[in-house]
Write a protein that binds this DNA or RNA. Structure first.
Lengths: 198, 198
DNA sequence: TATAAGTAAATAAACATTTACTTATAATTG
DNA sequence: CAATTATAAGTAAATGTTTATTTACTTATA
């Protein structure tokens, strides 16, 4: 039996993310992808059921999976609030700024109904994508350190500014000065932390 | 000379937004739109140069224009910081929760390269889309009320959580309990304000 | 040598856009 | 002030291209 060519599998994924980031999800076609990845269209269908399956697996496994792992690196639920949030922010910022194509697909996850539904399903099936953060926040509420709000609301307050800052980071990438530095992100993290504290 | 049928113009725009919100930007086609709007494909091309032109005008004029007007309603640069931000948040939340299809396109504005580029051009050409807010923030910095940060950074800190909360609002729309109430949004606004104050 | 991995080329449907024609009405005429 | 006409607004159907997916075949190796 002929073995799988893992380089081809990787090329399909990498180039799909490239096209999405540079031309948009609406301009990714199976034939364009096959040509760019130097592969027959059929080869994509050996690895993925159809186009939706490719996009969902790309989003859930390749992107969100890697993002989650990167964000939680060296994070520990027992950290104090400020240390924990700073770790998560810093991990997230470093990962996203070094993985622009992943970031682009994460943004599409918020707008595209296909990806959005896939994410909600995943979230329900596996409990929570970010369960350790959920428990971390719960503990801090119980200890009376931060204000008591539903987790989804806490997540919006704590992490949505970070994604917007990454957006600004890439907007500034082709300008003479980069205003979204590590220090700036750290300052913003302080602002967010201050708002949440009791 | 035969006059324009304004109802048809309106139908094209409304139904385009419907399709984008329900099926995604990647599933909007000119023929599907024409059929759904009860119009010949040609009619769309009388009003718009091509598909890109339709999408950009829909985004910039129809959606961002109306959103900007709604957010700034009864807002005044001379308001004190807390009152001003609360007004902006409340205006924004009311508008977006009552205009789900507009909200969907605003989200695509962050992911789609086509819309993203159009927005940046618009922003540069017309100065700032939200110039009054820019001046408002500048004044508060000068008065020493809030911390000094670049405007784009302030905007990320102040307003990105609101968009995330609107997202949660629609996610909860088909569940038994709506956790994103006006009171909850107000509480979150307090959190954000607190973080920014000196 | 059995078999899954791979290819090139084909298929039918959907795509953006255009062509060739019709229609409604504002402006002009008789 | 009714009839005519010029013209942009509109339509149905066609255009050639691109789309997702499949068919029929070849290839690499356990």
């Amino acid at each position: 039996m002929r073995p799988k060519n893992l380089e081809k599998e990787q090329a399909i994924r990498t180039i799909a993310l490239d096209i999405i980031a540079n031309e948009g999800l609406e301009n990714l076609s199976m034939q364009k992808l096959a040509k760019a990845a130097n592969v027959s269209p059929r080869t994509i269908y050996i690895k993925y059921e159809d186009k939706d399956d490719l996009l969902i697996k790309l989003f859930i496994t390749e992107v969100l999976g890697a993002y989650e792992a990167a964000v939680l690196k060296d994070f520990n639920e027992e950290m104090d609030f400020e240390t924990g949030v700073k770790k998560l922010w810093n991990n997230g910022f470093q990962y996203l700024k070094n993985n622009r194509t992943h970031f682009a697909l994460i943004l599409y996850g918020k707008s595209s109904p296909l990806l959005n539904k896939a994410y909600q399903k995943q979230n329900i099936r596996q409990g929570q994508f970010f369960a350790p953060i959920h428990r971390f926040m719960e503990t801090k509420v119980k200890e009376g350190i931060i204000i008591d709000l539903p987790f989804d609301v806490q997540r919006a307050l704590l992490f949505s500014p970070l994604l917007d800052l990454v957006n600004e980071y890439f907007d500034h990438a082709d300008r003479p000065v980069q205003i979204i530095t590590d220090e700036m992100v750290n300052t913003c993290c302080d602002v967010v932390i201050k708002g949440m504290m009791k």
